[in-house]
Write a protein that binds this DNA or RNA. Structure first.
Lengths: 345, 345
DNA sequence: ATGAAAGCGCTAACAT
DNA sequence: ATGTTAGCGCTTTCAT
């Protein structure tokens, strides 16, 4: 800490009041009368006063900070969520700390500790898992924690999310609408809830449309570019390759498109690809990616809103808060070519 | 704060020692003898003790946190830098807070305030500008602040950076080597130092190769996708359009490629494009982008290293710390077609 | 409307 | 090697 040398008592002396009055004047309690009020504020500004946060936090037993914990800070996807969280937090006088678990099993432990040691007052958890110790269900549900985007079943924690199953079904319906019948799915790391729901959305939409889902058409990925590439190769090598692929996220969709191109196919002429997430570069990608767009910033805002409710003693919603998605139809999807032609691929 | 109810005095009572001894035992001072030491540690673990950070920070007058301030958290580019900073910080027991200025003029003021109010002990500044107040040069140079990637001239602050001019010259040399003679530059927001240096690298490399730099061939952008698109259109509309473009960052390069494609040109056949930064998706882009790769994580590490030096009283290096770049040659550059053909474009 | 006094939980002198 | 004491800077009773 750069010793913010001027403290409340310095102002008090200069103005000729007690420290208590200065504190009250500076924190807008409405308990200080007008001649004094202005003099204190002016003097504080003149002296370039900044309250010492440690002292204040120690006294008030709150840090006015919240923690947003994600799987991987390196994933640009979360940045829009952060923006929403931050905007909402700032309005309420909170700052936001980022944390990431690097996808490691006990990764959230560290951040639950930060809740206990006063680093933060509450937490927005976007990792889909809970700490390994400290797992007394009923106790956990008392903590000021909101789960966003992901799901932690039976945790009793409030959730803010999208309808992954319906969104996936939408994407598939788009492909079916274009005339595709042989549609494959590159899933996320099932059995994680998010990945599972997207896969179920895929299956139900297919079944609903009377289309078959051969087991070779559903391959499990890990949301990485590399997985998209590898699994797409696998699909294209099938005796009856799909004419369309629905990937559980954009990165795998990018990978799939790269693999298709390397295999001599043109997207969307020879293969349609739909992603999920609508990443920053999905629109600039060649071809521009058709994908499910999540209201990322709004999800962040909503999650922070629920957290503020909890922190101020209001009851959080008992039902999950569900925000709508939209399918961004772009250039990576088109009607399929005649089947004969594709067999030769 | 979730009241971490168990405090040092609780442990002290259980073990039958004074709070001071517990404090010493828990902070590895080596001043507590062995029978006691273990008993204290065991008890602390058993009671699930967590030190209250506010109290500790207040007492020690340090927060053990550093601030990393960037222009835009939404820019994935900074995330790799963050990883380096965080790794190095964690080893030294520091946590990292992110801040962003949204490119607004007075944006860094807020974070300099956080230094003064005890939120953080030091700062890594990646915005290229200083707060508007508080500009007493000599005073500023005393603050525990390290400038990374960008440059703040005459600030007296330690810098960790790459050689932007040389890297830009490398990129141009690559194009010249392929046989290009009509090479244009889409620059960053000159006169910012980073943008200026890249432009100078471009100019010097061109001049050094005996190539002309008509003024219509150097257009100023703002690092955005849109700028890349727009300025590329402008270049292609020239009576003598360039056969190659060196963009001051990858996003503008992406924009340029998109614009070229829209204009009916194929990259790299009809137009070569080089970027700068080597963003996450540059490799997956179609065509894979030839670009200057910065050692982002290493830059982060190095910057944090210098900051740790300052925070622990060691003198920072007086010379800027310069890390090497590498030109990633990928698919967006190739030898130019015959000139005649291009004129018709 | 303002002041006096206590204390948040911890660590660092200064004893012993 | 351990205990005693004081105090970091602030907010908040409780008085007046």
């Amino acid at each position: 800490m750069i010793t913010g040398r001027v403290k409340i008592i310095d102002i008090a002396r200069r103005v000729g009041v007690s420290p208590a009055t200065v504190s009250r004047a500076l924190s807008d309690t409405g308990l200080v009368a007008e001649p004094t009020l202005s003099r204190i504020r002016d003097e504080a500004r003149a002296m370039n006063y900044r309250p010492n946060v440690s002292a204040r936090n120690l006294r008030t037993r709150r840090s006015k900070a919240v923690l947003m914990v994600v799987r991987d800070v390196g994933n640009p996807f979360y940045l829009d969520v952060l923006k929403g969280v931050e905007a909402c937090a700032r309005e309420a006088g909170y700052s936001v700390l980022m944390g990431n678990t690097e996808n490691q099993p006990g990764g959230e432990d560290r951040y639950f500790d930060m809740l206990r040691d006063g680093h933060a007052d509450g937490m927005i958890l976007i990792t889909g898992s809970l700490p390994e110790d400290e797992m007394h269900r009923d106790l956990l549900a008392q903590l000021p924690v909101v789960v966003a985007l992901e799901m932690v079943e039976q945790s009793g924690l409030p959730h803010v999310q999208i309808d992954n199953k319906a969104a996936a079904a939408d994407a598939v319906a788009h492909l079916v609408g274009l005339g595709h019948r042989r549609i494959a799915h590159i899933s996320g790391p099932v059995p994680e809830p998010m990945a599972s729901l997207r896969e179920r959305g895929f299956r139900e939409a297919m079944t609903g449309a009377g289309l078959p889902v051969p087991s070779s058409y559903v391959l499990r990925g890990d949301y990485s570019l590399a997985a998209g590439k590898g699994l797409c190769c696998q699909l294209l090598a099938l005796p009856e390759p799909p004419t369309a692929i629905f990937a559980a996220n954009d990165e795998m969709a990018f990978g799939a498109i790269a693999a298709a191109r390397r295999a001599g196919l043109e997207v969307p002429r020879d293969l349609s690809v739909v992603g999920f997430d609508d990443l920053y570069l999905s629109e600039a990608f060649q071809p521009p990616l058709t994908t499910v767009s999540q209201p990322r910033t709004e999800l962040g805002r909503a999650a922070m809103g629920v957290l503020l409710d909890i922190l101020s003693g209001r009851a959080p919603p008992s039902e999950p808060f569900v925000l709508p998605t939209t399918l961004q139809v772009r250039g990576s999807t088109a009607a399929p070519l005649a089947q004969v032609q594709l067999r030769s691929a």
